[in-house]
Design a protein around this nucleic acid. Sequence first.
DNA 1: CGTAAAATTGATCTGTCTCAACGTGGGTGG
DNA 2: CCACCCACGTTGAGACAGATCAATTTTACG
Lengths: 260, 260
Amino acid sequence: MLPRNMTTLLVRKLEAFTELGGDDHAALAELTAPIRAVEGRQDLVREGDTPGDLKLILGGFACRYRLMPDGRRQILSFMIPGDFSDLHLMPPRSIDYGVATISPCEVADVSRESLAALFERPGLEQALRICRFSEEAIVREWLVNVGRRSAAERVAHLLCEFFVRLRVIGQVTNGRTRFPVTQGDIADSTSLSVVHVNRILQDMRRVGLLTLGNRELTIHDFGRLARIGGFSAAYLQLNDDFSGAANEPRRPGPDLRPQA
Amino acid sequence: MLPRNMTTLLVRKLEAFTELGGDDHAALAELTAPIRAVEGRQDLVREGDTPGDLKLILGGFACRYRLMPDGRRQILSFMIPGDFSDLHLMPPRSIDYGVATISPCEVADVSRESLAALFERPGLEQALRICRFSEEAIVREWLVNVGRRSAAERVAHLLCEFFVRLRVIGQVTNGRTRFPVTQGDIADSTSLSVVHVNRILQDMRRVGLLTLGNRELTIHDFGRLARIGGFSAAYLQLNDDFSGAANEPRRPGPDLRPQA
DNA sequence: CGTAAAATTGATCTGTCTCAACGTGGGTGG
DNA sequence: CCACCCACGTTGAGACAGATCAATTTTACG
């Protein structure tokens, strides 16, 4: 059985997608899986592996990634507490991406059977379905991000997405959140160079948009950041309690530089 | 009921993922949906729509896409005969991407209920599950493509993917296939400019890799093109009959230019 | 303290974009 | 049946966002 606070985490996350019943809560509480601590920068799943247990992140950050033959890395998505490594219920074929921790993590190894049991409950089935759709939408959004946005827009968009997702699981207080993601990680997810990410973050600091350092991120003007990144939370499929608050109408916003 | 040849198309496509039983064939044959002809460059689903009927492409090419506020377009994936607009079975929420035809198409409007009926059959359920996983993997692959590959690599990879997918549904003969995709479409899917796509295609023609024109594509040296694009068909989840033939070991290949 | 990872800075380079024509083929209305 | 049109393709020149290279500084932490 998962510790109480971790059950709360899962409930919180899934209820951001759709209402759950008391029985659903109970089913989540009964989820049994060994939990272990994993260092930062460790593989949880390697590219080409046959899917074994699911990895459920309970604490810390992780990511899905692909490696190029020359060693460069493309991060496909970030995983934060409450995220499963995959929700496919696929027959054993090889997985086309790796999963690695970013920071030290607490990871639960959930068997496919346990997950299948959750899918038996209609309420959870619905929540997990939307959760999966949300994850798919994130990848689509990233494709747009990398394909059609400028460097500053990409970084802004990524940070907005992080911010909303972290707020859902209650990890944002006063616009501040734990953020153990390096500039290198941001570079690998936005397809920019570390150097360039660094310069963009400095611009953002300079104009007072955010504070970032000490593995901590504070966003001082979310609306402005969202406008810069063309961010609208709709694709995350959150219910109105969450999507509204952090959402801004999608119109062209002022540029990062004072006058552009 | 779908016309016979279109049932054959679906069977062919799904059996590329996994074996189907005779009953599964029958279930597909019984699928009933109005079929209509649609011009090229028409929207089938608009961004923000509430999901209605599924669109099943029976002839012609279409695409999923996102539009930026400034009018630029990012194509998220191409749809070829046998492809459904979505396989989510989601409750009515808004869809975060549009679907539009590339060429004139034959489109079947399949109701969510009809699709749900197919999911009742374990064999089809499995096939459609893998089909969906394959589509997800394609988006991931495109993210890598756009994020981490050079212009020539991107185009090569895209063409390889097209080629394999078209071969599965029997639309390739002697390395030649109908290809109503404009250079503008290629640009919008690889996140390149039309001008640059044009130059790359000319390079590829010059070195005898392919012939492209008159809405027809011939790939003269698939192995070489795959090596240039770092293409490996594994992510498409095809069974061995298909994945092997067009697959090449993934090693760094010779550059496009004679000596690089 | 020492050491390694992460962040920062400056200088330079380049792949790809943008702009601006021009060519071309196939459909269509006169 | 021809002339026009429009989408698509092609070409050249110049511009620039972001990459790369090469240090140097700061931070985290044993």
